[in-house]
């Protein structure tokens, strides 16, 4: 099994690791960095969005990359969203609006919507719904997620 050595920063912490070339980024994050908040919902089809993280601030599905491609980049996972133990407005809104039930999809949605709100500080409900199409949620029916994103947008503006 051929391997390669990579250096990535995850939530501000530097990891230098030798990994199999075929190791997916999501597996690297979960197994090597032991950050299990990033989930796998469609087993690497790139459809469900549960594995979404940010690479250099951009939301990406971490099952669609191998870890080696992240070499030299900065990754933020859901564990890096709260700063100094303080929930982000988006995280707080998810709790207050009951935007999660099982919470399996939630980390991916938070990482996607965190970027979305930076790009769209004043979104309409329709824009929020279209911003969410890369994230499947089986529990909530999405309405409360839209409410939470709207609340976070309002609070952050």
């Amino acid at each position: 099994m051929s391997t390669t050595t990579i250096t990535v920063t995850i939530n501000g912490e530097v990891f230098e690791e030798t990994v199999p070339v075929r190791m997916l980024l999501v597996d690297f994050i979960r197994e090597r960095a032991a950050l299990t908040g990033t989930h796998i919902g469609c087993t690497y089809e790139g459809v469900c969005g549960a594995c979404t993280v940010q690479i250099d601030g951009e939301a990406v599905k971490s099952c669609l990359m191998v870890a080696a491609q992240a070499d030299g980049h900065e990754i933020t996972t859901v564990e890096g969203l709260a700063q100094g133990g303080e929930l982000s407005p988006l995280q707080r809104a998810f709790n207050e609006q009951h935007a999660l039930q099982c919470g399996y999809c939630t980390p991916g949605i938070l990482m996607n919507m965190d970027e979305f709100l930076r790009e769209n500080p004043d979104p309409t409900d329709d824009e929020i719904r279209h911003g969410l199409v890369g994230n499947l949620c089986r529990c909530t029916g999405y309405a409360h997620i839209v409410d939470a994103v709207r609340q976070a947008a309002k609070e952050t503006r």
């Binding site: 989930h39 859901v78 969203l81 709260a82 929930l87 998810f94 709790n95 999660l100 938070l110």
Partner: peptide, 19 residues
């Protein structure tokens, strides 16, 4: 009352089977 379960789930600290 806002859910007690949520804090761990929105901070990536949930404990699912694969974890």
């Amino acid at each position: 009352f806002h859910r007690k379960e949520d804090h761990r789930l929105i901070t990536g600290k949930g404990r699912f089977l694969a974890d």
